[in-house]
Simulated scan of single mutants.
Amino acid sequence: MICWVLYDIKNDRSRSKIAKVCLQTGLYRVQYSVFLGKIEKNDRDTLQLQIEELMDESTDSVYIFPMSKDELRDTKLMGQAFDKKMITDELKSLFL
Rank of each mutant, 00 (worst) to 15 (best):
D56C: 13
Y32Q: 06
V62C: 13
I87F: 15
L96D: 12
Q50V: 09
Q80E: 12
V21R: 03
E57F: 09
K84A: 08
N42L: 12
L94K: 12
T46C: 09
L91D: 06
S14R: 14
D74K: 08
V21T: 11
I64P: 01
E90K: 14
C3V: 11
K38E: 10
S61W: 10
S58A: 14
K38Q: 12
T88K: 04
S61Y: 06
D83C: 12
T88R: 04
R15L: 12
G26S: 14
G79Q: 07
W4R: 02
Q31C: 11
K85M: 07
R73S: 14
N42H: 13
M1W: 03
S58G: 09
I51K: 02
D60F: 14
T46N: 13
S14Y: 08
N42Y: 05
D70S: 14
R73V: 13
L77I: 02
Y28I: 13
N11Y: 05
I9K: 01
F82P: 01
K17C: 05
F65L: 13
K84I: 14
R44G: 14
E57M: 07
K76W: 03
D43Q: 08
S16I: 05
R44M: 15
V5S: 00
V62M: 04
G26W: 10
R29V: 04
N42D: 13
C22V: 02
Q80K: 10
R73G: 04
K38T: 01
D43F: 04
L94S: 02
P66N: 02
Q80V: 07
M78L: 10
F82S: 11
S58F: 04
D60T: 01
S33V: 06
L96F: 08
M78W: 04
D43G: 07
D83S: 11
C22P: 00
K17H: 11
E71S: 12
I87C: 02
I9C: 05
L96V: 05
K17P: 02
K17E: 13
L96W: 13
Q80D: 14
L49M: 08
E53F: 11
F35I: 02
I2K: 00
D56R: 07
V30K: 02
L49Y: 03
Y7E: 00
N11E: 15
L91T: 06
L72W: 08
Y63M: 11
L96M: 05
F82Q: 04
D8Y: 07
M67N: 00
L96A: 03
T75P: 04
Y32K: 11
M1V: 12
K84L: 06
W4G: 00
L36G: 00
L23T: 07
M67E: 00
L96S: 15
I18R: 01
R73Y: 07
S58V: 13
A81S: 15
S68V: 04
E57P: 01
S68A: 10
Y63D: 06
G26H: 09
C22S: 01
K17L: 15
M86R: 03
C3D: 02
E57R: 12
R73F: 07
K38L: 13
W4F: 15
V34R: 00
E57Q: 09
V34I: 06
C3M: 10
S93Y: 03
K17I: 10
F35A: 08
F65V: 01
I51S: 03
L47G: 00
E53C: 09
K38V: 14
E90V: 13
